[in-house]
């Protein structure tokens, strides 16, 4: 098991290298001139002279490779430069906003699991009866509903009409409910379908037949054998959901004025604040990759076929 984790950690190095190159290139090869953005954000008139000085100062007249190495070298020491807008260290700025986003995404992920697993199982166990129809209708509704639209609806009903929940900002649980629900709805719906499908598949295997023939109670057959086998695809999906939630957070944070890193990133994109964008993208990728590593570890823990594959069969 330790061997497995170590191998996966080694794999992180090439992944992060590739991603850093991509992040750097995509932003640099865009149509905009960072020096121009820098001057605009510093409210300096973009004369030719000023542009030349800014290029010199930002290192933009060096070859692209040198620029990348400079940036990557400093990034390795966790120095992502200064924001063009606030002139403060980018990383400190982002880390200031990050906890709010992690809170929102984490609660949404928890909500996803707590709602989708029981609903998916309930739906599969009552296939073609009313619980199944209802859950499937719900899942269909959830997949088709964009999160920003869901957010607007929730605000209209629960804040404007009923005055039950605060429409914006961060605070106690009541502030979290609506953003988390609109963010999680998509993952919940996808997960329900996934769990339902894998439960139905696992309910009719020969190993379940033999489990019944051995005299196991229905509770054990479903609660232990069908459940554990059905969890395997769900674990893979969680890795995907993390990406979905982080991406969705950018939108949902803007709607609910949630003071998270997503809202900060959106404003930095409007401003073309290059150091912030680069650091944000890299950070999101690191979080995503680490979560997927965690998922792979869970995956190996639950499925011996994966765990033992590296060690060779006896």
């Amino acid at each position: 098991m330790l061997h497995f984790i170590f191998r996966r950690l080694l794999l992180l190095i090439p992944i992060l290298f590739t991603v850093s190159v991509l992040v750097f290139l995509i932003l640099r090869l865009g149509p905009n001139d960072p020096a121009l953005s820098y001057l605009r954000l510093s409210q300096i008139p973009p004369t030719d002279e000023a542009l030349a000085t800014a290029r010199e100062f930002l290192g933009l007249n060096k070859p692209l490779l040198v620029q990348y190495l400079d940036w990557a070298g400093r990034a390795l020491r966790l120095d992502f430069g200064l924001s063009y807008v606030t002139h403060r260290p980018v990383l400190a700025e982002i880390l200031y906003y990050l906890p709010a986003t992690l809170e929102l995404a984490g609660v949404s992920l928890l909500l996803t699991l707590l709602v989708s697993i029981p609903l998916g199982m309930w739906s599969a166990l009552n296939k073609d009866c009313w619980p199944d129809h209802m859950t499937r209708a719900f899942a269909f509704f959830g997949v088709s509903m964009p999160n920003f639209w869901m957010g607007f609806l929730l605000v209209t009903v629960f804040s404007v009409w009923l005055h039950w929940l605060p429409p914006m900002g961060r605070g106690g649980i009541s502030h979290l409910i609506m953003p988390a629900v609109s963010l999680a709805l998509m993952s919940i719906s996808i997960n329900i379908r996934l769990i339902r499908a894998s439960m139905l598949e696992n309910l009719h295997t020969r190993s379940v037949l033999y489990a019944r023939a051995r005299g196991l109670r229905e509770r054990t057959v479903i609660g232990v054998h069908v459940f554990k086998n059905s969890l395997i695809p769900v674990i893979t999906a969680i890795g995907m959901h993390v990406g979905e939630l982080l991406g969705g957070a950018v939108v949902v944070e803007s709607i609910f004025s949630w003071p998270g890193v997503g809202r900060f990133a959106v404003s930095s994109i409007y401003n073309r604040d290059y150091p912030v964008m680069q650091c944000f993208l890299l950070l999101m990728v690191v979080i995503f990759v680490l979560c997927n590593l965690l998922v792979d570890i869970c995956y190996a823990a639950i499925d011996p076929r994966i765990r033992l594959a590296g060690e060779g069969n006896r």
Binding site: S207, N229, I302
Partner: peptide, 11 residues
Amino acid sequence: MQNPVSCFDPV
């Protein structure tokens, strides 16, 4: 049962 390989839960 027939086909014993498929009759056991792999996990």
